[in-house]
Design a binder for these strands. Structure first.
Lengths: 333, 333
DNA sequence: ATGAAAGCGCTAACAA
DNA sequence: TTGTTAGCGCTTTCAT
């Protein structure tokens, strides 16, 4: 921690104020003489100085810090989102503090609590459970906050999400337009509102007859994908002509299971999923993907909290939709 | 922020000390009467209290915070490492603050600086450039630190890494044992010491004759993989019997390029790479992978900083090796 | 069993 | 042009 302002003041013979002013770059504003500035600069160049942000934060009640609580940072979607959000923050001199809840509501609460105790200027949350109504939360200056990706009905905080329902509808429609007759949708974690919306969208496009089945699992993982595929295979009968998955993890598990059971993924099966992975391009199958725009989501989330930090009253219950892209790989194959 | 300790003291009629004691769970230790405790507990239950960690940190000179600077958090290896490290931290009541440098040395310096200003108790760094020698850094109580994944020669800080050279040797040997005759190694970013070591290991196993070529690119990206594949194809001649890549991104780019050029990745080509991705299992090719143990790396890094925080003098220049796993996919295919 | 008081390092209004 | 001063909210030693 090198020297403190007091020490520098002591040792150069100037007052703390003077030192503060030149170190914070407001020397001219306070008309510190060039000579004084130089003396102080030189002293610092020699002895070093790292500001103690803790003390500064305590005094100014700003931490120049934004908290982000992700359900699972190992999920590439959130990793990319985090990278974009961090870039937004850095551009404004803010530091992003990322934490993950592991999809555990109790951990989510603890993470939020911990970030607030540390005085973050704003919070970005991808919730894994509905939050208690505002009235139940303790009063006091509430920290600016924005929800991303997921939105539980009734939450009054602004949410930035993709239109999961519409995207699922488009994806499913594209699958059917490619000639699929029997379509199966594998869903991890249907309690998650994003997933629930995807199911709704799937139903809109595919109907709910015999030829459009939805299988669900308790969580969003490769194991869940495997389990659903096993259930499907156990049913006997022929494979569907298209497989739609709610996430890359589920897809991965499902395809691995299929490969084990049938020695290969049938190349004529249409594969559809949310989120992009480069290796999908290598499959011989037609692959259709909804690719969310993590950078745009991050920008939207950031501009919301920036506005709130700037004093703009939070837009209660607003929901902002960010467009996603429908990508078709191997369309020519 | 609800109430402060002073306010609670004021409004309940007790002193700040008493409030502190019961709120920090040391009531019995200080023999606060049960009645007093109850009164205070009730008051807090009704009005709420969130401790101001900023003030606490300032006083105690501990932030219960660990900083992690990753080169690129969107890289799944670092994302998984971060998730594991966070779990270690949480178990000890520490909060992990993750930041990324984007492989930019200037950003790395800024990130470290910013974390130190914020008073993190320790730093975990995956460096993207050699750091200035300790003597050049400003004196003062140095923050406990550990390097991960990469280690620039001459750095005196403890490093936790895989044995990149040996792993590359094993990987290459496994490839050759599978019958590959002509082997090509695509490398992103050879300035990175981890990559340089991998090249050395490759050479050990494959020699440096005509049949063992190394191509390099300036960065670690899919674009780099594509460029190297294009260069290889432009050379004419037949494809190598095995392709080794320094990272998943490079592999992805290389294979996509190959697919474009030859309509498909030749299924008899052996593919080898570092780091695992579930979709690799779906390729018809024999795929051999070095799978690093992110959780073990995280545990080792954490135990090092925990020891340093606990006052153990840093083990100068120590290098700790964490075993990786050689995985062969589709060996039967 | 409880309280008083000093002070962590910094900022900023006000004085000089 | 520079200095004085009063805290920010908390912990902790020492009194009572």
């Amino acid at each position: 921690m090198a020297k403190t302002i007091s020490e520098i003041a002591e040792e150069t013979g100037y007052s703390r104020t003077t030192i503060t002013m030149v170190l914070s770059g407001r020397a001219s504003e306070y008309r510190i003489s060039a000579r004084t500035q130089k003396i102080i600069q030189d002293y610092v160049a020699e002895h070093g100085y790292t500001i103690n942000q803790t003390a500064r934060n305590l005094k100014t009640r700003r931490s120049h810090t934004v908290g982000f609580v992700a359900p699972e940072i190992a999920n590439p979607f959130f990793a990319r989102f985090m990278a974009s959000l961090e870039a937004c923050c850095r551009a404004e001199g803010l530091v992003l503090i990322t934490t993950s809840s592991g999809e555990d509501p109790a951990l989510e609460v603890r993470a939020l609590q911990s970030l607030m105790e540390r005085g973050v200027d704003a919070l970005v949350l991808a919730p894994c459970a509905p939050r208690p109504p505002a009235s139940a939360r303790k009063r006091g200056r509430r920290t600016p906050m924005v929800l991303v990706d997921r939105h539980y009905p009734g939450d009054s905080v602004e949410a930035i999400t993709s239109d999961h329902r519409e995207n699922a509808r488009l994806l499913t429609a594209a699958v059917m337009a490619s000639g699929a007759e029997r379509v199966v949708f594998f869903c991890g974690h249907p309690d998650n509102p994003a997933i629930a919306e995807r199911i709704a969208g799937f139903r809109e496009a595919a109907g709910d007859g015999e030829k459009a089945r939805v299988l669900t699992a308790d969580d969003d993982s490769a194991a869940a994908g495997e389990a659903m595929m096993q259930a499907l295979l156990a049913d006997g009968g022929e494979l569907p002509s298209a497989l739609v998955c709610s996430s890359l993890l589920v897809l991965e598990g499902a395809l691995q299971c299929l490969k084990q059971a049938r020695s290969a993924v049938p190349p004529e099966m249409i594969i559809a999923t949310f989120d992009y992975d480069g290796f999908l391009e290598l499959l011989p199958n037609t692959v259709i993907v909804i690719r969310q725009d993590e950078a745009a989501l991050a920008r939207a989330a950031f501009s919301s909290i920036a506005a709130q930090i700037g004093g703009k009253p939070a837009a209660e219950g607003t929901r902002t939709i960010v467009d996603a892209e429908l990508v078709r790989l191997n369309a020519t194959a």
